[in-house]
């Protein structure tokens, strides 16, 4: 191979020497290993299960929530609202950066950066850019109220529940 280099091959300075080629490949492999390990470490630190709350949760019996009241369920971080036209559940987490909002006489207010919301959770002023998150409410087979966090609904959309109507009439 050394002796039979064809004359039309690239000049010596252009040709990659065997040593350079090996060195470069070595660097490449080392770099690939490092990159792989780094990527692996990053992947490791991304949790695969986010243990936390499940999307569906039982809120309680419809009769627990009296007509005309807004109930804060601390453990679910939800407000449950019962009005003449039905039930609704919305989050007590501020859509700005996640603090817990508090009720005021005019709606809700967040202590962290001063966002204010109306009684149905729509933004009145402050840094929040969207309303409190509303979630679908339904009755389960057990006759209890359930919330489904994977299904967002529009602020002000109540789920009419005949069960509740029947109960409160009786």
């Amino acid at each position: 191979m050394k002796k039979t280099r064809p004359p039309e091959a690239a000049s010596v300075s252009d040709a990659v020497s065997r040593r350079d080629f090996l060195a470069d490949s070595g660097r490449l492999v080392t770099a690939a290993c490092l990159a792989g390990v780094t990527a692996g470490a990053v992947r490791l630190s991304l949790p695969d299960v986010e243990s936390g709350r499940r999307p569906r949760a039982r809120l309680g019996a419809p009769a627990d929530f009296k007509m005309g009241t807004v109930t804060w369920l601390q453990e679910h971080e939800l407000f449950v609202c019962h009005k003449a036209h039905g039930f609704a559940a919305f989050s007590s987490r501020c859509p700005h950066l996640g603090c817990t909002v508090r009720r005021t006489t005019t709606g809700f207010r967040c202590p962290c950066h001063g966002a204010r919301f109306d009684p149905e959770g729509r933004v009145v002023s402050g840094p929040a850019r969207r309303a409190l998150d509303w979630f679908a409410v339904e009755t389960g087979p057990d006759g209890q109220l359930w919330v489904d966090r994977s299904r967002a609904t529009e602020p002000g959309s109540f789920t009419p529940l005949r069960v509740a109507a029947a109960e409160s009439a009786g």
Binding site: T69, T71, R102
Partner: peptide, 19 residues
């Protein structure tokens, strides 16, 4: 100032005192 389940009063007015 209702006391139900961390709730809000019937007239929706006062904050819950525990909170």
């Amino acid at each position: 100032h209702s006391l139900t389940a961390g709730g809000i009063g019937a007239w929706d007015d006062g904050p819950e005192l525990r909170a």
